[in-house]
Design a protein around this nucleic acid. Structure first.
Length: 646
DNA sequence: AGATGATAG
DNA sequence: AACTATCATCT
């Protein structure tokens, strides 16, 4: 441990090099200066209902699905309300608990979901809809993106050193309520602005030279929760750049979280670390509404406290096998097992991956993915169903559900369409059948239904279709039929589909909204972008007047104006970023620069072991019942104790 | 390409 | 306990 220095000593140098600094700009997954954030909405479904219903934060609230609870807000948790108990028990523990049932589709009600007073009694006619939550998720994601895009550009009149380079954060939607963000490019930009001495003088300077030491001796961590340092580290040591980047990262994340709160009234928790694994574990450390920073100097101490089964990919059978093979689930104990020993019990790939991961080494990329890859609509049948007739009723609902989501996710605009439709069906075992979706016709509800129905008949023809305890329909293999040069044709396709949407959907039916639907305000046409969102919920997410409404205004498809609809949209085939025509050239330049940079990256990356290959899990006692017998989380079945690796 | 599993939230 | 989603792996 070095002695505490009160003043900045310009003769000291950093542990880090110019090359490692450059890694930030180039998306290197190996640089120790990388900063990844994981942001997780607090009790997401519960917050959605709190926002929709306007209940105060102190009011305990739970979201119910039939007789179970699927989300419990933080106000309710001190009462002991948890996901493991049922509605009656929850009421007993917390008499003032607000219990809101999820929205549902109902048989024979036009394929529209709604919040219904009696849905908890209607498990046999209703199907859960998560659409309201998906809609909120999209808004939150959008807000985060905007916050990231404007961070550091509003207050200071900045001129970037390389105006062509767009240094923006990569954002990966990990689930409906979680995102990963690679903050490295943004932080790189901020570093150069704040510390001009970091700039390399000339091109041919030695990139492996060490950086100057940061001109600071103490960092202000504000409201962040800091993870304790490793054994041989001390807070008295002067910070190096890996500490500084975390500090900047935490500033950015704070501003993102603040934007989500200010604009949409959602709280979230965040973790910051040098990779996805660390960030993910970190975000769960201090909930709700706090952010946790894991500095490099604290990584091992941080991980030592965990069971490795809590690390991503180790929560299932692989984790069980490892536990069995080495007789421990503690990271701290597995740390004592040398790589060679790991190799004797695990496949080489898996062993190296595991060896690295428990030491905090994870070089998984943050995948710039926002778009959904498949959509599934499913229903479990309490008493099983026994006829094609019954099944087809549900297929109608599934088709309506999926079609609505296709529209809402802007599938029509982006001319993205699924290529495959699959039916899943469970009697004794699970079975599934899939067929291509003909590329010729526009996708509408009826087409989906007809295909589903065909599949169902195939399943039935295969025999042993009844009784059926679970049925679902999914679409997948989305292809983005994008091309900037076909804007006009694209428009025509859109137009057709928009009409199809208008006419083909099932009779817009009899009397309106089943029960308590929020008032309908149907204005607001083509302004989905930066509009102040006053009405968080309700209307804008209801299929009846939603997505479609916000975007394509299906009420008046004939009047669609290609210019107003922002037609000359170009979507980069490489990164799916959408932009308008004149931005394309600059964007291509950016890719070009990035490609050059990736050479560097390859060198650095060479040593990263691949993630565990699932060459295992096979071999022994094939399938068999799901063995739900033994309580506790999935303990390995007898037949599976043997490792398939060796 | 189609069917099935593993994992996770 | 549902219900979604994604990825990998076998055929």
């Amino acid at each position: 441990m070095s002695e505490h220095t009160e003043s900045y000593d310009p003769l000291k140098v950093s542990r880090f090099t110019y090359r490692q600094l450059q890694g930030l700009r180039q998306g290197s997954t190996a640089t120790p200066l990388r900063v990844i954030a994981h942001i997780d909405l607090d009790a997401f479904y519960a917050q959605c209902e709190m926002v929709r219903l306007g209940t105060p934060r102190e009011t305990p609230l739970a979201v119910r699905q039939w007789d179970s609870l699927i989300a419990i807000n933080y106000a309710a948790r001190p009462f002991g309300v948890s996901r493991l108990i049922n509605v009656a028990e929850a009421r007993k523990l917390c008499p003032d608990l607000v219990l809101q049932h999820v929205a549902t589709f109902r048989e024979g009600e036009g394929g529209r979901w709604a919040y219904r007073d009696d849905s908890f009694r209607s498990i046999s006619t209703d199907k859960v809809s998560l659409d309201p939550y998906r809609a909120q998720s999209r808004k939150i994601l959008q807000t985060m993106k905007e916050a990231l895009a404007t961070w550091g550009t509003d207050d200071t009149e900045v001129e970037s050193h390389n105006p062509k380079q767009d240094l923006s954060a990569v954002l990966e939607k990990a689930s409906i309520d979680e995102v990963f963000i690679d903050l490295s490019p943004l932080i790189y930009r901020a570093l150069l602005q704040r510390y001009p001495e970091l700039q390399m003088e000339t091109q041919d300077e030695n990139r492996d030279a060490q950086l100057p030491i940061p001109p600071i001796t103490a960092l202000q961590w504000d409201t962040d929760c800091l993870v304790d340092l490793d054994q041989h580290e001390t807070e008295e040591d002067d910070p190096d750049w890996d500490d500084v980047v975390m500090l900047i990262g935490s500033e950015i994340v704070r501003s993102v979280r603040n934007a989500v709160w200010e604009k949409l009234s959602y709280t979230c928790s965040a973790g910051l670390g040098r990779n996805k694994m660390i960030a993910k574990l970190g975000s769960a450390c201090n909930k709700p509404n706090l952010q946790t920073v894991v500095r490099n100097r604290g990584v091992q101490n941080f991980l030592n406290g965990y069971k490795f089964t809590q690390i991503r990919m180790l929560g299932g059978k692989l984790g069980d096998q490892i536990t069995a093979a080495f007789g421990t689930e503690k990271v701290s104990e597995l740390l004592n097992v040398p790589l060679e020993h790991l190799r004797t019990k695990l496949a080489d790939d898996t062993a190296s991956w595991l060896y690295g991961i428990i030491r905090g080494d994870d070089r998984t990329e943050v995948n710039p993915r926002t778009q959904i890859k498949s959509m599934l609509s499913a229903k479990s049948f309490r008493p099983s169903i026994n006829s094609v007739d019954q099944a087809e009723k549900w297929l109608r609902i599934f088709a309506a559900d999926i079609y609505g989501r296709l529209v809402e996710d802007g599938v029509l605009e982006n001319r993205r369409r699924p290529k495959v439709i699959t039916i899943h069906h469970r009697t004794a075992q699970f079975r599934s059948r899939q067929i291509p979706i003909p590329g010729s016709s526009a996708i509408d509800e009826n087409l989906l239904y007809d295909l589903a129905s065909t599949l169902l008949r195939q399943v039935v023809a295969d025999g042993k279709a009844w009784p059926c305890s679970n049925l679902s329909l999914s679409v997948s293999s989305f292809e983005d039929g994008v091309s900037n040069n076909k804007a006009i044709e694209g428009f025509l396709i859109r137009g057709d589909q928009a009409k199809a949407l208008n006419h083909s959907s099932r009779p817009r039916d009899t009397d309106d909204s089943p029960s308590e639907q929020a008032s309908t305000e149907k204005r607001r046409k083509l302004d989905r972008e930066g509009s102040k969102i006053k009405n968080f919920f309700g209307n804008s997410s209801h299929p009846e007047d939603t997505g479609a409404d916000e975007r394509d205004s299906p009420q008046e498809p004939a009047e669609m104006d290609p210019k107003l609809s922002g037609i000359p949209q170009f979507v980069c085939p490489r990164c799916s970023k959408s932009m308008i025509e004149y931005e394309k050239e600059e964007h291509d330049d950016w890719h070009f620069a990035k490609d050059l940079a990736s050479q560097d990256r390859e060198e650095a990356k060479a040593s990263q072991p691949p993630p565990p290959t699932k060459s295992n899990a096979r071999g022994t006692s094939a399938r068999g019942r799901s063995g739900r017998g033994g309580g506790g989380r999935g303990k390995p079945e007898k037949g599976q104790m043997r490792l398939a690796f060796q």
